[in-house]
Design a protein around this nucleic acid. Sequence first.
DNA 1: TTGTAAGCGTTATCAG
DNA 2: CTGATAACGCTTACAA
Lengths: 341, 341
Amino acid sequence: MQPVTIRDVARAAGVSSATASRVLSGNPATSAASRERVTAAAAELGFSPNAQARSLRSTRTDSIALLISDVRNPYFADLAHAVEQAARARGLVTFIGNANEDPAQQDEFLDAMMSRRVDGVLLVPQGLAGGGGAQVSPAVERLLSRDIPTVLVDRTLPAAAAPHVTAESAAAVHDAVASLAANGHRRIAFIGGPEHTSTAAERYGCFRAALADHGLDADEALHFHGDFRTASGAEGARWLLGLDDRPTAVVVADSPMAIGALAVWREAGVRIGVDLSVITFDDIEAFALHDPPLATISHDLTAMGRGAVDALATLMAGDPTGHTVLTSTFTGGASIGPART
Amino acid sequence: MQPVTIRDVARAAGVSSATASRVLSGNPATSAASRERVTAAAAELGFSPNAQARSLRSTRTDSIALLISDVRNPYFADLAHAVEQAARARGLVTFIGNANEDPAQQDEFLDAMMSRRVDGVLLVPQGLAGGGGAQVSPAVERLLSRDIPTVLVDRTLPAAAAPHVTAESAAAVHDAVASLAANGHRRIAFIGGPEHTSTAAERYGCFRAALADHGLDADEALHFHGDFRTASGAEGARWLLGLDDRPTAVVVADSPMAIGALAVWREAGVRIGVDLSVITFDDIEAFALHDPPLATISHDLTAMGRGAVDALATLMAGDPTGHTVLTSTFTGGASIGPART
DNA sequence: TTGTAAGCGTTATCAG
DNA sequence: CTGATAACGCTTACAA
């Protein structure tokens, strides 16, 4: 079936293509008569407007892009869901892209989106492994140097390059460490994320600060550098088991790593909350599977998603927007127990 | 900064826009000299072609759409990841859409994709709640009546409307039920998915067949109708606890429902593998959190994703394609124990 | 090998 | 309220 164009509709309705266009895009300057005939003809022919052509002219696409780090990470899945629902409420379609924690994949998706002229971009920026200067990947550079409304979500970028909606965990981490300290823990390990992401840095930074608050000193030897994925959590778990003078507690920086780590510890016969106290970031539904209940430091992803869409909408409307920082919540659980002495 | 057009590039390179276009789209009819100057100019100006305009002319977009039922369901997250990687290997960008198990959201996304003229569509079709005739939602109808290459993934549609890549679980379910039967279980409940999805029907159908294979009769009173989401799994768990002559074993039709159900059972003090034997569909990483290990019936999502992309690529190349049906695997676990007598 | 010019399907402008 | 007509940014005959 050949695609039906607006001209076909106009011809069938006996009007000009301009009138047909006006009717179909809800322009009030139309007569009831032509409105009726055009809509009828469009329905009859099964007309679906060519968005390419439309936005070539109008430069609006009513769509936004959301780039997340990892579709398989429940944290980002929740974020994607929240964004999608909030965007839908504003009449925007969301295209979700998966960077797979890889700047190259991020860039491909962003380029595709830019050339498709989405109205705005929500970006969880991927860190550059290089680590040297305050670099930003090429496509992100392009994104920002053009005037494409962009909001960073969850993670930020060095130069405060764009407005962002992120979470701040100081208070929750403080409470979490307080809970450990109250249980007599003094050697607390940290299984962290990749250093080149702002969240990994923020989470670890808050952890160190919290230690200091409780008169404990941060021991860099108790800091494992993971990559936010399951396998590295398992590695971190094994690393912990191999430490001399094994720590009695550990904080894990995200849920996939926690899943990987807990599986290893179970296999090794480590009793969580008894032999080892565990606190993990990112409360996900699947944690309900774990016994005992896990203590968590969590974010309100629905709020983050909605906040991000709000900020982006403001930006798309042409108004400047600032940063939003949400606070995290500490929820205790039986995975914290007294330090064995 | 105003968007950079191909004319800007051409001007900077001192050639016509036609030559610039030829260079940038890899047309061999170009001189080394202009090739060099054009690519330099494009890089210099940060040119990114307008995909709208390009495909308005050329009708290829090198992109595909993937519509999944629920981003937050790890099963679909895994599928999305697999598709995305396979598509990327073929130079295709994947736009992921989330239907949220809702035909209306599915249709919005599909319409947006059709009007953006993606080269192909991978669709996990949403069931119509009506249940009456063999209907298909309007946008899916449009999708199929036009000649847009489309492959159904995971779920099918009544009229074998399009080629599909799905999983078949008969053998795995047979083994699973055999394992229960060998442990003396005779009353086995089933917490199923929404009837209007083909997978729910297939999974339950195989379950009934497997019961028959083992001389057990299917009792419709032991069939709970869930909706593939966590909350309904919890409901199903409570339903099971309230049954007279409580079944000693249960099969759960997907992982989110299993998560919801297991949480309820734990809270009720039900010992999995002792008081109640459990087998669940869809092996996900987070199941590693559960003790004892869960018996599962699982699919190879990587194979499904790759198979779907292969089928779609074949279709996009103009060749007809058939159906692919993958087999499932049963993996035993300590969540199956002897029936208490 | 290159340039000119004609569209692709739609919407915006400007007269009527 | 409507109809010509000119773009939007790009590709592709067709000439040169």
